[in-house]
Computed example of a mutant assay.
Amino acid sequence: MIRTTLLATAAIAATPALAEVNVYTTRQPELIEPVMDAFTEETGIEVNLAYIDSGIVERLRAEGDRSPADLVMTVDIANLKQIVDAGVVQPVDSEVLQENIPAELRDTENRWFGLTTRARIVYASKERVADGEVTTYEDLASDTWEGRICTRSGTHNYNLALMSAMIAHHGEEYAKEWAADVKDNLARKPQGNDRAQVKAIWAGECDISLGNTYYMGLMVNNPDQQAWADAVRIVFPEFEDGGTHVNVSGVALTQAAPNEDEAIRLMEYLSSPEAQSIYAEINNEYPVLPSAEISDLVASWGEFTPDDIDLTTVAGHRADALRIMEEVNFDG
C-alpha cells in the first residue's frame, strides 16, 4: 500500500503542472474573455477569471500569502491607487511594459499599468444643443445650463474622478463652487447609470449629460437603446487650462502571485498591438499603446486632447472630492 502511494505521488510529481494565471477582476468577464482566449491560444497558458464586484482589497488582505490571485484588473485610477496603498501588489520590472505603455498611464514605481482609457465626456442633444455650445467642464456651471443637465450620482467613482481632476486644476474652493452650481443646473435628482442619462435626453428630460465614451458603443450595439444613441452626439469638453478628462482600466501583480512568470507574460501580452486592438474593438475604449488602432466606431466620435495632469495626482484628491460632493449635497 505504501509502495502504491509512493508510486502515485511520483507520477503526480512527474506530470507537468498546468500553466495558468488567476485574475481577480471588477470587469465583467465577457468584456475581457476574448483577449484572454487569444492569450491562451498563443501561449497555452490558461487564464482563470474571478469576477469580484467589490471588496478586492479586503479579500486580498484576508487571503495574504495564501491568495491564489496573480493579477488584479480593475477600472478607475482611484481603485488602482487603493490597491497600491493597501500593499497587496508588487512592482513589475518589464521593458516590454515600459516600452508599450506611456509613462503617464502607469505607476511611477511600476505597481500598476494602464490597459485602456476612456474619456468623461458630454452627451448633447442633437436637436436642442448647438455645436460649440459647450466646450469646457467649467461651462457646466453656467446659468446657460439651468435645468438642462442630467447625471448619475455625484459620489460615483466616475464623477468623483472628474471632480478630483477639477480640484487638481483649480483647487478645492473653486471645485466646491463648481459642484454647487452644477447641482443647481440639474434637471432632476442624480439617478441611474450613464446610459440612463442619455435615455433622459432622448425623452426630453434634459439636454446634456455626463458620461463615459464607451457607453455610446454599448447603446449603438443594443437594439433597444439605439434610439437613445441616435438622439445625442459626443462632445469632448476640456478643462480651461488642460484637456479632456480620461480614466483608465489597469492591471497589477499581486504580492502573493503563485504564477508570477506567467502573470507577467500575460501583462506584457495585454500591452501588445494584438491585445490592445481586441480590447479596443470589444470594449469601445481607447488603447494605451500609441500604435494600436482604435475601432471604426470609436474613431467616428472624433479626436480629442487628453488632459495631461498625472492620474495618480488626480486620484490623490478623491477623498476631498467625496467630501465636497457630500457638503454640497449633490445627490440631495
Rank of each mutant, 00 (worst) to 15 (best):
E95G: 12
A78R: 07
R59W: 03
D65K: 15
V122R: 01
D76S: 03
A86H: 02
R118E: 14
Q82R: 14
T108S: 15
Q90V: 12
P68C: 06
S94K: 04
Q98E: 13
R66W: 03
E95K: 13
N110W: 01
Q98V: 07
G114E: 05
D85F: 02
N79T: 09
G87E: 09
N110C: 02
E99P: 00
G64D: 08
E95H: 08
P102V: 06
S94Y: 05
T108H: 09
L115Y: 03
Y123T: 04
V89N: 07
V92N: 04
R61C: 07
I121N: 09
Y123C: 04
D76M: 08
Y123M: 13
T116W: 01
G64V: 11
D70V: 06
A78D: 14
R59K: 14
Q82H: 12
S67T: 13
R66D: 15
A62L: 14
V72G: 04
T117H: 03
A62R: 14
V92D: 05
D70N: 12
E63P: 11
I83V: 12
A119G: 03
A103T: 10
Q90W: 10
I77F: 05
V75Y: 11
D93N: 13
Y123G: 15
D65P: 04
Q98P: 00
A86C: 05
V84W: 08
L105P: 00
L60N: 11
L71W: 09
T74S: 10
D85I: 06
W112G: 00
T116N: 08
A62Y: 08
T74F: 02
V88C: 02
M73L: 15
N100V: 00
V122P: 00
V84N: 12
E63T: 11
V89G: 09
E104V: 00
R106K: 12
L105C: 01
V92A: 10
E63F: 12
E104D: 13
T117N: 10
R106A: 04
P91D: 10
R118A: 13
T74D: 10
N100C: 00
E99K: 15
